[in-house]
Amino acid sequence: MARILLPVATIWRREIIRFLRQRSRVASAIAQPLVFWLVLGGGLNASFRPSGLPDGTNYIVYFYPGVLALVLLFTAIFATIAVVQDRREGFLQGILVAPVPKLSVVFGQACGGTTLALVQGALCLLLLPIIGLSTGIVSVLSTIGVMVLLSFGLTSMGLTIAWRMDSTQGFHAVMNLILIPIWLLSGAFFPAAGAPPLLEWIMKFNPLSYGVAALRRCLYLDNPASVGDIPQLSLSLVVTGLFCVVMYLCAAQTAYRRVNMT
């Protein structure tokens, strides 16, 4: 067992140490959620009223779970960009010739990215009292639980892409073309209700929609009527869980193939 867990733990630990040693990453981790929420949420609050929601729901409150998802997505992305850098700088090759299964390597990387995303997401939760969302302890804990699932899924998705990439520039292109649109069309920015039919369909098939829905459901656990027409919590959790498993297997498979093609 130590042979499997030890590599996972050490790869995870390295991700955390590296993060803490890069002050700019720590600073942006703390500042980014605040900036997003205040600038986007605050800026759009006066001119945007989410459709399909009870009267009186303001945008800055609606946008909050979306910011949580964005923070998780961004942190996952930056954590996985490290894989591209590791390969370019040569660090990864040392891991690849070690007697460690690729599943453990990818799992360690995914756990590292998940932890960083989770910490950043948790910092975001500190904003809850400020925006006036009254949430109980069960609500906060279940939100954290969903954040764990979502972070793991998003980090694994990032790893699937990063293991194929040779340059961080390529990764940024993918991020702009795929990852940001996935977030925009997840119900984080605007609700599916009222969107053009095509977008509504895309949102229905977007796995991140269910992650954002799960976050929203958990945050409004005590007041389910105010979330509007979004997927149920059970369905959202199942889809998000499946997303995690599928993305992790994709990442492991990509890593395995990439190594054998080198």
Partner: peptide, 23 residues
């Protein structure tokens, strides 16, 4: 040929990481 050390880690941390990979 290209060092596989992590530049952001100390020498001992790199050694510890490597040791763990080898059980």
């Amino acid at each position: 040929q290209h060092p596989s050390l992590d530049l952001k880690l100390t020498v001992t941390e790199n050694l510890r990481h490597h040791g763990h990979l080898y059980g």
